[in-house]
Write a protein that binds this DNA or RNA. Structure first.
Lengths: 200, 200
DNA sequence: AATAAAAGTGAACGATCGTTCGCGTTTTGC
DNA sequence: GCAAAACGCGAACGATCGTTCACTTTTATT
């Protein structure tokens, strides 16, 4: 079972860090939320900072295997409608997967004091989505679904507004439905601007 | 002189909060950075939390008078080039004015635990710029400088990528020059897409 | 110049922080 | 079935937290 407790600690730490930040979290409350004595924690991690670093290791590794490798690039849609579908599916996942939401919150809070959090924040908030959609848009241009243009610029223009609304969801989850609708509306507007109508 | 010290405390607190966050900041270090005894602070503020709340009051009030009222809306440019100029001037100010930078950093770090910080963060990061450019783009459409389209959608599409790059500057100031160049490139691309060429 | 109010200070307080210790219990490897 | 390692726990430690206190110095008022 290779230390099931360790995983529970990491899960609880991610949750608490994402609510109160690293400095605002204390070990007593963290271990208490697991129904565990304060000191038992130290059988699994030698310090609070090691919990943080392990968590960050996981976040970096997860991001790398999920979005870092070329084989995980999404398929190029066969129609402009397919772009919307793909976008909404992706957004829905990223907004409702609690672990991903908590990761973004933690990165937002700790990006200014931890170098690795800073680097990962830039990937999560900016370059990751842009790189992904640069690939998608290149493919769509080759298929004649999008106007010929700089695919990276288009990807940046497409993903930034979506990213901004995802951040809004993280901050004010009660607005998630509205934000999703706005993302879809923006997506349609983007297609209206850059898409090439199917003849027929 | 109405308590010059109080202002210095608030300035130092903003700086420290923006580096270490509220929970990560302690009163000793804060007063120490002002060459002041630990306890003197309490002649001006009755608690650490009151410093925080006063700071937030200031940030909210400053934002309201700076961006909240209709008379502070920027003039509508007379050309598409004018839009770029105005944009770059505004971005330059917001990226290099230390107080504004520190405000954004604090809001990024505290948005999840303080309701007022959360509300102000949404204004700073999303709705503020969008509202401003909704006005600008409406005016530019009326002048025949921009394609007829939903001005709010265009403002959202225009400001979100800029906002994302401003956040990058906050996080990695050494990339500020590159980011400014990217903003300008994006701005030109936006004009190429939505602008109406001047005949002649 | 006298006096009251305001501002500054070092010492100290109680609470809480991360962490360690000693000891009992459970699980593992042979 | 037994030794050893791993795990869990409450008590306690030293450091640090926000804050208060008793007291001195500065500033403002008349």
């Amino acid at each position: 079972m290779a230390s099931d407790t360790k995983e529970k600690i990491l899960a609880a730490a991610l949750e608490m860090f994402s609510q109160k930040g690293y400095a605002g979290t204390n070990i007593r409350e963290l271990s208490g939320s697991l129904g565990m004595g304060k000191s038992s924690m130290y059988r699994h991690f030698e310090s609070k900072e090691e919990i943080w670093n392990t968590l960050l290791d996981r976040m970096i590794a997860y991001y790398g295997e999920r979005f870092g490798s070329a084989e995980h690039l999404p398929p190029v849609p066969d129609s402009t409608d397919g772009l919307i579908t793909m976008t909404m599916r992706m957004v829905d996942l990223t907004v409702h997967d609690e672990k991903i939401v908590m990761t973004r919150k933690v990165l937002a809070m700790e990006q200014f004091r931890d170098e690795r959090a800073k680097a990962l924040a830039t990937k999560h908030f900016l370059t990751g989505l842009t790189e992904m959609f640069t690939h998608v848009f290149s493919g769509m241009m080759a298929k004649g679904l999008l106007r010929e243009d700089d695919p990276e610029m288009l990807a940046f223009a497409y993903t930034s507004p979506i990213s901004a609304l995802i951040h809004l969801c993280d901050r004010e989850p009660e607005k998630a439905e509205d934000a999703m609708a706005e993302i879809e509306a923006f997506s349609w507007h983007f297609i209206k601007t850059y898409g090439i109508r199917n003849h027929g």
